[in-house]
């Protein structure tokens, strides 16, 4: 692997685990809590966000030299809003049922701070290639987080996954899981597990380091 490929890989992979936009940065909470009541909604939302983020990062990185810093935020927002509108109309035309479920949350992608954050913190300072890798990694991390939440909530709240019945008619759905409180509960518990795992890993690494020190 050459050095530049290695760099690409690093920018991509960091968004999935180490800097995951949801589990680590705790960004994009509005769509995270609002539209994850089923796996399919979560995937659609994640897909729309991926499209917007990758598109915006590409354009911002490509035009960064021509955007004066005084109006950069306005320019980013114009670019993001354009992609959001395109995503909105495309979803409405192709999958009207999903669009109806997601409702106002598609236009609200424009206010997702993860997207503006990536433009300001990364795309406007890096090459097109790295910006796109970063955007791909971040939005994949976002999709994974949305899907995890959506799947847990749909399985418990409706006894199904992607609309396919998992447990038969006798299953008593946990109604709270598809209501807003269920989003908060599930997200809180997932963050708990995530932090616990990170902590365990850190403690393990420290132990290994100590053992190596005492060996030498």
């Amino acid at each position: 692997m050459t050095e530049s490929e290695n760099r690409d890989y690093n920018e991509f992979i960091k968004g999935i685990w180490r800097d995951n936009p949801v589990f680590v940065q705790v960004l994009g909470m509005c769509p995270m809590l609002a539209v994850t009541n089923s796996a399919i909604n979560a995937i659609a939302m994640g897909g729309a966000t991926l499209f917007v983020l990758v598109g915006s990062s590409f354009l911002v990185a490509a035009f960064k030299k021509w955007i004066p810093k005084q109006v950069r935020i306005s320019c980013f927002i114009i670019i993001i809003a354009t992609f959001v509108t395109i995503a909105d109309y495309t979803l409405l035309a192709l999958v009207p049922v999903v669009h109806k479920e997601l409702g106002a949350f598609i236009p609200l992608i424009v206010a997702n701070c993860m997207i503006l954050g990536r433009q300001e913190a990364f795309a406007s300072k890096n090459t097109v290639r790295l910006a796109v890798m970063d955007a791909l990694g971040m939005s994949t991390g976002f999709v994974i987080a949305l899907f995890t939440l959506g799947a847990v909530r749909e399985i418990l709240g409706a006894g199904s996954l992607f609309g396919i019945d998992l447990f038969g008619a006798a299953w008593e759905p946990w109604v709270i899981m598809i209501l807003p409180p269920g989003g908060f509960l599930t997200l809180g518990l997932i963050l708990l597990v995530f932090n616990w795992m990170t902590q365990r890993k850190q403690m393990f690494m420290e132990k290994v380091a100590e053992a190596q020190r005492s060996d030498s």
């Binding site: 021509w66 955007i67 004066p68 005084q70 109006v71 306005s74 320019c75 114009i78 670019i79």
Partner: peptide, 8 residues
């Protein structure tokens, strides 16, 4: 600035 924004 104005031209950039207008173009965008």
């Amino acid at each position: 600035l104005i031209v950039t924004l207008a173009l965008a």
